[in-house]
Amino acid sequence: MNRDLAAARDLAATVAVQAGRLQLERHDTLRVGAPKAHANDVVSDVDIASERLIVDAITAAWPDDAVQAEEGHGRPGTSGWMWVVDPLDGTRNYISRTGPWSVCVALYEGDQPRVAVVHEPVADETFSAVDGGGAFLNGVSLQVTGGPSLDKALVGISFQPNPATKDRAGKVIRDLLPVSGDIRRLPAALNLAYQAAGRLDGGLCLDTNLWDIAAGALIAREAGVILGGHGDDFTPELTIGAAVDLWPELSALVRAVLVS
């Protein structure tokens, strides 16, 4: 089934910006619900309203597509295409006003990511990509350079805040921080998008979900970031990204810590 990928990207960008505006408008009146998987896995009524806005728009445009969405508004489909939606990646940052968050929308054809949008509402920045068509920030092309050595590199780290993953992340940070330029903890989608923009030289995401990394990974890849995991393919369990010159050092260190 043919699909106008530019039109899909434009719709994804439009609804992501609309959801971002809703999040800014409702920041002072949000209500936090009960934790989900664990005490640090929080959700607000704004997450749910944002997801409903995005899924309703997608369903109206492509009613036969499947949707996989974090807050439960997913649906099966018959077209072979699937939208992957994280309406608010970085909910705890959003609730506590302690850092950035983003709206993430990706489109898959089978198991192949074809379209991606990550929108950061506060900065009004929209990262986007089409498979084979490059990555962009507010319409300006992104292309990473070779990158620095690890001792000068700024590295992003993202992880699910459950006890087991925090323990694994702590081991990586223990070995990475002394030998890197510095590290930053970020939500997974912005970790990957910032690598695409050259703001981070590399990064890793531990024990995420597909909706956390689907959009950011395509944007990073299209900008020239090398991606991998325990092997050549990245997974939600482990996604490592880096500029080409940094990749050997960073990937070797991360893999050594997590395998040991």
Rank of each mutant, 00 (worst) to 15 (best):
60 A>N: 14
154 L>A: 14
25 E>P: 00
106 A>Q: 05
29 T>A: 12
97 R>Y: 03
239 T>N: 09
49 A>W: 05
250 L>A: 08
240 I>G: 11
162 N>G: 07
157 I>T: 10
195 Q>S: 09
44 S>L: 04
251 S>V: 10
206 L>C: 01
99 G>P: 09
240 I>A: 06
78 T>C: 00
93 N>C: 01
159 F>M: 12
140 V>R: 13
19 A>E: 04
222 E>N: 07
124 D>A: 11
67 V>S: 11
97 R>E: 14
102 S>H: 03
8 A>N: 06
217 A>H: 11
121 P>T: 01
136 F>L: 01
134 G>W: 10
146 G>F: 06
107 L>A: 12
244 V>E: 13
132 G>N: 09
145 T>D: 15
11 L>Q: 02
199 R>E: 14
26 R>K: 15
203 G>K: 01
188 A>C: 08
168 R>Q: 09
89 D>A: 05
65 D>P: 11
165 T>H: 03
223 A>Q: 07
212 D>T: 06
111 D>G: 12
135 A>V: 06
234 F>S: 02
161 P>M: 11
31 R>M: 09
74 G>V: 08
98 T>I: 12
87 P>L: 04
221 R>E: 14
20 G>C: 07
177 L>D: 08
151 D>Q: 13
239 T>R: 03
80 G>I: 00
55 V>E: 01
160 Q>N: 15
2 N>E: 15
247 W>L: 08
223 A>P: 02
20 G>S: 09
234 F>L: 02
125 E>D: 13
246 L>V: 07
12 A>R: 04
237 E>I: 06
115 V>Y: 09
124 D>R: 10
162 N>L: 13
161 P>K: 12
250 L>S: 07
187 P>K: 04
94 Y>Q: 03
213 I>F: 10
97 R>D: 14
40 N>A: 13
9 R>C: 05
101 W>R: 01
154 L>V: 15
141 S>E: 11
180 S>E: 03
242 A>K: 09
3 R>S: 08
119 H>E: 03
186 L>D: 09
162 N>E: 14
29 T>D: 14
216 G>N: 10
135 A>D: 10
159 F>G: 09
80 G>M: 00
17 V>G: 01
80 G>C: 00
180 S>G: 06
167 D>Q: 07
149 S>L: 04
109 E>K: 10
115 V>G: 02
212 D>Q: 04
204 L>G: 04
210 L>F: 10
218 L>E: 11
199 R>H: 13
226 I>Y: 14
129 A>P: 04
233 D>E: 15
252 A>V: 00
14 T>Q: 13
